[in-house]
Design a binder for these strands. Structure first.
Length: 200
DNA sequence: TGTTGGATCAACT
DNA sequence: GTTGATCCAACAC
């Protein structure tokens, strides 16, 4: 509807992580990859909050791996896992408090053809329905870890899109902290990574 | 220096 | 529902 496009600034990332996670649904992830521009609308995220959250990488304390989570909100935290995949997080809250929002699902908007390149089966239109797949489609690796999301390379935008209904559920793929309902997703989106119903 | 297991995904049975 | 692919950080020694 509206044509206004607003890049999310530092203040967006310095609020409580659960608010940020909820508000990220429907925002657009934008990555300037060389002369190309890739973007996708977020449909699924999970919050990881503090050293008290057993599923958060910061549960073991500050290490070289999770260091950027201890920095000020509004930076990228990209880690490597399972020998083959990268996962993209948005660091939140003040410096010294480790928290982040994992980007789990998105709908390709711009640069969709480029996102197909890493895939053996480019005919699939499910290139970004999972945290590992988003990084694969966007070409994000450890090299993009710690980028300032208020900069010009990798950032998030509010393009005026408002999701119809945002569901919540427990988080996926973790062994500890599964009681918390810290996953947020746009209901009925085909780009949500797994179908787990809304729980109260 | 060596071991272990993970915020995944695709391809099986 | 289970498994294999395959890296690296964390931790034990």
């Amino acid at each position: 509807m509206t044509s206004s496009v607003i890049k999310l600034g530092r203040d967006f990332y310095l609020r409580p992580t659960l608010e940020i996670a909820h508000d990220l649904i429907g925002k657009f992830l934008v990555y300037k990859k060389g002369k190309h521009l890739l973007s996708a609308r977020l449909v699924e995220v999970e919050a990881y909050i503090g050293e008290e959250d057993p599923a958060c990488h910061a549960a073991v304390g500050r290490t070289r791996r999770n260091d950027v989570m201890y920095g000020i909100g509004g930076h990228s935290y990209i880690y490597f896992i399972y020998g083959m995949y990268y996962c993209l997080n948005v660091v939140t809250e003040r410096a010294g408090f480790p928290a982040a929002v994992l980007i789990r699902g998105a709908e390709p908007v711009e640069g969709a053809e480029l996102m197909k390149r890493p895939y053996a089966n480019p005919g699939s239109n499910r290139l970004t329905d999972g945290p590992g797949k988003i990084c694969k489609a966007f070409g994000l690796t450890r090299e993009q870890n710690g980028l300032d999301l208020t900069g010009a390379k990798l950032y998030l935008e509010d393009r005026g899109y408002r999701p119809l209904r945002i569901g919540t559920s427990r988080r996926i793929g973790i062994r500890k902290g599964t009681d918390k309902l810290w996953r947020f997703f746009e209901e009925s989106s085909p780009f949500v990574s797994a179908k787990i119903g809304t729980k109260k």
